[in-house]
Design a protein around this nucleic acid. Structure first.
Lengths: 244, 244
DNA sequence: TTCTTCATATTATTCATATAATAATTTTTA
DNA sequence: TAAAAATTATTATATGAATAATATGAAGAA
């Protein structure tokens, strides 16, 4: 029976079941190659109609995670086929307990993308975009000691940089940054000490974009990423310590 | 050709309608914010059942392209929400006529990803993986004068590098490379002159990976990308010339 | 006026059921 | 034995009907 009451996956039945099954697959409840229960049984098991379950399966197929054929049934595709850059898949993968490996993968990609994006932003940002960035920076400044409310403008800041590249493909990596920041805020929730320490580097990013200094942006963003990764790793270590 | 994730227009009704509508949206037949025709009417217009159309719409929603709510109907989401890194969306976007802008976006991202991935591969590749890469290289060598058959090993070569990073997020960018290479081969089909000229750089990539020389890989891949982008731009210019 | 509350029409959502298509398996046939 | 045909389990597709959500406008209150 699907947990109907407003859970984390609030909203439609479809969304709830999608999240349940997506999470289940990502967490390894089914091995790749495994056949999934047939549609009738499974929809009964989840307490929903076949319609809903079928739509969920189609969406998962659209993300590369499953494949279904008549007679054979629906089976999990190899992990290498999953679209890990899909916002849903990212969210599923980075919910729950996180390994150092997970963090490495996340930041490896961020390090390739964000400095490059920042350099492009420095070349291409319009005066309006620069002004917006400054406004977001001011917002961050305001909440620099309030971990919860800092999260949103911080996310907006990093995504704005991607958008300023004018490259839609790069823009679609916004979900990646969101995942990383949500993870960071989730982990550092235990010891909320504010984010004031990251303000100088953020300011440096913004001013270098305004000045059109791509190399400066690149350096500042790399330093920012080093800092952020360090933070996350510390939080994970601390959390592990608690549980032992 | 390489494995199509969800299934190309061939086969199921679902896949056909998905491609039709996905392509239509990406090509701008509906403006963002536009409501789509009412589900009942539309399924009739496409000559398929509501079941199929609903599943298609759910999949498109899963890729961030549409959103449907009661009373309002289903409407196109802003382009900034679309997941352009989704294999299907990529394929839709890079089918048909291509602008210089499109090429720029594609190669901007490739330039950020592939040299970095190559450097990681140089650090992490196992001897087995290096051997595989050499085998693929041999395959490329064999078909260096046959544009059609060269395509597949070339794609395998570039995707192998992503996989050797051991980073699943980076691995999910395989579709991006596939899109770029398919585009390249599609465009250069008119004047098939083989790909022998790109072999020395490919060899350099492989040997530097084998030697664990990250910096060498990075440089070779950058050169390779310069070359490839140049090729594509020339092909586009030539094609434009033909039509005028 | 302006805001809030409420009813209503519209639409997606969900369910239930029936038939068709497909492919793996088994049986039959040459 | 090997090829062909029947069987069967499963998804794919279609359709009718009930339910739930919500934008819109009307009515009422401040």
């Amino acid at each position: 029976m699907a947990s109907r009451p407003t859970g984390s996956a609030s909203g439609s039945l479809h969304a709830m079941v999608l999240n349940q099954i997506g999470l289940g697959i990502v967490r390894g409840e089914f091995a790749p190659g495994d056949p999934l229960p047939n549609a009738d049984d499974w929809s009964a098991a989840h307490g929903v109609s076949r319609t809903v379950l079928r739509e969920v399966i189609k969406v998962l197929a659209g993300k590369g995670m499953v494949e279904s054929r008549p007679k054979t049934g629906t089976r999990i595709r190899p992990r290498s086929e999953w679209n890990f850059l899909d916002p849903d898949v990212l969210a599923w993968r980075y919910s729950g307990t996180i390994s150092g490996e997970d963090v490495r993968e996340l930041f490896e990609l961020r390090r390739a993308i964000e400095p490059m994006a920042g350099a492009l932003a420095a070349e291409r940002a319009t005066p309006e975009q620069v002004a917006e960035l400054e406004a977001v920076l001011a917002e961050m400044e305001k909440f620099a000691d309030d971990g919860d409310r800092f999260a949103e403008p911080d996310l907006v800041f990093h995504q704005a940089i991607l958008r300023m590249t004018g490259n839609e493909l790069i823009g679609s990596l916004a979900a990646l940054i969101e995942t990383a920041l949500l993870l960071s805020f989730r982990l550092s929730n235990d010891n909320p000490r504010g984010q004031r320490h990251s303000m100088p580097l953020h300011r440096e990013v913004a001013s270098n974009i305004a000045a059109g200094n791509g190399e400066g942006v690149r350096k500042a963003l790399l330093a920012l990423l080093d800092d952020a990764e360090e933070d996350v790793r510390r939080a994970i270590a601390a959390r592990r310590g608690q549980h032992e």
